[in-house]
Design a protein around this nucleic acid. Structure first.
Lengths: 228, 228
DNA sequence: GGCACCAGAATATGATCAAATTCTCAGGTG
DNA sequence: CACCTGAGAATTTGATCATATTCTGGTGCC
């Protein structure tokens, strides 16, 4: 979420003034990210026009953006669907996430303030609660929030933007796996990351992030393989 | 029979059947990549409707996609422009390009065939010719072609996609610098890369790519600083 | 200098056309 | 006799355009 999506501060405090295509984009984006859309599911313009109660043009623009983000897939014959990831895709995503997100974690470590760390702790507590109660939707939201909040302190809009796109790609698959195997099954290295932040140790933060990313993604790989 | 991949191929061989928004996107994308649009320049919908002789809806969709790509910038107040990169942006791009493109080069090394290497040599020769004759547009096109052709053999669509986006971001700035300092001033490590490919040495390919990326981007940094 | 007004551009709608999938119903086959 | 198959109609969905509405930025008047 960077300059491409950043609404002006003035617009944020007055949501009614956001253009319709922006609202539709945000809604659709959330649906992809938090798994309201199942991989393979068809996404139709007219369907969204009805469910989101928007005009055709805004829906069209939102879908184009999501396709460009990699969140949706253009099937060639005018059809749009939610992508289903294969092992090959996941392998690439693991590499990309490791390099980009570790760097972001490292950079954030050097800049984040003590009180902003506390904010991350708050999110992580909500995450733990979601895990404990088996709240899949809450798990997805809080987990994403944790990473996004951390990266927002890295002062690296382009890298954050890339990371954000990667999350959009595996969001639906993450939902599938967490719904199938449960939230408890997921590894969680956030405590280690928070430790590293408090010690202001970038290397340690990067290492903890690498484990968080790798273990999480590996778990997705396992979960998806089990489906076949 | 699930030939979900054949329709695009059929559409490609018959360009007339490509949807208007796709054509507009390709044209605009080329204009950004090869510097027909100057950083800071305003991009208006109605202007493109006239110059590209397309309808309003296709132009709208194409612009949204380019914004999502990072190729264009939404200025908040309904204005769209070509981004002008600062040192901070370039620093991020250097990191991202190095990690992603080195990996792509490394992966391509293990898979590319001898005849495909020859194809790269052909492109590189055209590049040398463009450099020698000071053909800025040709330089930009051939340089991009070389990298894209190489990455197409890495069998990594997601990473290639990320790399492609990065090029869209610095395209306009690259044009500015090469127009200002000339094509000869740019370093060129393509020969080293080709050497590594022939020896099937992924490490060496990654190293050569790292130098190509770093020196090229550093040159852009210098060139843009000179402007201030 | 501030405020109202105006021109122009962007946003959004609905209608219309084109394309693709689905459905239906024969006709043929095991 | 049941079932698979395929041609063609019907329906759904996407693409495009013309048009109305809203918003922004500038201009000129007070």
């Amino acid at each position: 979420m960077t300059e491409t999506t950043s609404p002006p501060a003035a617009a944020q405090e007055n949501p009614a003034k956001l253009p319709a295509h922006e609202i539709v984009y945000q809604k659709l984006r959330a649906q992809v990210l938090f798994g309201e859309l199942v991989p393979g599911q068809a996404v139709t313009i007219q369907g969204l026009v009805e469910t989101l109660e928007a005009g055709m043009t805004p829906v069209r623009e939102a879908i184009r953006r999501l396709i460009s983000d990699g969140a949706l897939m253009f099937q060639g014959n005018r059809r749009v669907s939610v992508p289903l990831l294969g092992p090959q895709d996941l392998e690439e995503l693991i590499f990309a996430r490791k390099t980009i997100e570790c760097e972001l974690a490292s950079r954030a470590t050097l800049r984040i303030s003590t009180e902003d760390i506390e904010e991350l702790v708050t999110i992580d507590n909500a995450l733990d609660k979601a895990i404990a109660t088996g709240d899949v939707a809450g798990y997805l939201v809080q987990n994403y929030s944790f990473h996004t909040a951390l990266y927002s302190h890295a002062n690296a809009p382009i890298l954050s933007d890339i990371a954000d796109r990667l999350w959009l790609r595996f969001g639906p698959s993450l939902r599938v796996v967490s719904g199938r195997l449960g939230t408890q099954s997921f590894p969680d290295r956030h405590k280690d990351i928070l430790d590293a932040l408090r010690r202001k140790d970038p290397e340690m933060a990067a290492l903890a992030m690498e484990r968080d990313v790798f273990e999480g993604m590996e778990h997705v790989v396992q979960g998806l393989q089990a489906a076949n």
